[in-house]
Amino acid sequence: MTVRVQCEDFDTAAELEKLTAGNPRIGAVVTFTGLVRDFAEDKAIQRMTLEHYPGMTEKQLSAIVAEAQQRWPLDGCLVIHRYGPLEPGDRIVLVIVASAHRQAAFEACEFLVDWLKTKAPFWKLEEQGGERRWVEAKASDDAAAARWQR
């Protein structure tokens, strides 16, 4: 189970290969990749900067991964989240979940994305033309995370 917070891009295929290598128990791998969109509320986005809270980010992501492991029988789990300046089309986040069967992998992946969006301390700053705007949290993201509340 691995959590990485980094400025650099990542290679999804290479990470998937590493996660599953040598474990023939794994029958299902689900990956989620989040990308920078080039629009927000009908306005064009030229650039985005992701700020984070070093230390707490890793701590919260690790706690979320531990929670997923408690809930589903996972054979592998990786979360990579980038920070710093990004442009439309750039990868922001990668979540890979491996399990013996697909249901656990699908559910755990969705859970991890829903929870990291509402719990991991990252903040998006969007730039449109000369304007900069801090992205506001969405009620729909809170609702998605709340589905998994026990």
Binding site: K117, P121, E136, A137
Partner: peptide, 10 residues
């Protein structure tokens, strides 16, 4: 102690 707005990662 950290003080910040609601988070918007992912």
């Amino acid at each position: 102690i950290a003080i910040f707005p609601p988070v918007t990662g992912g």
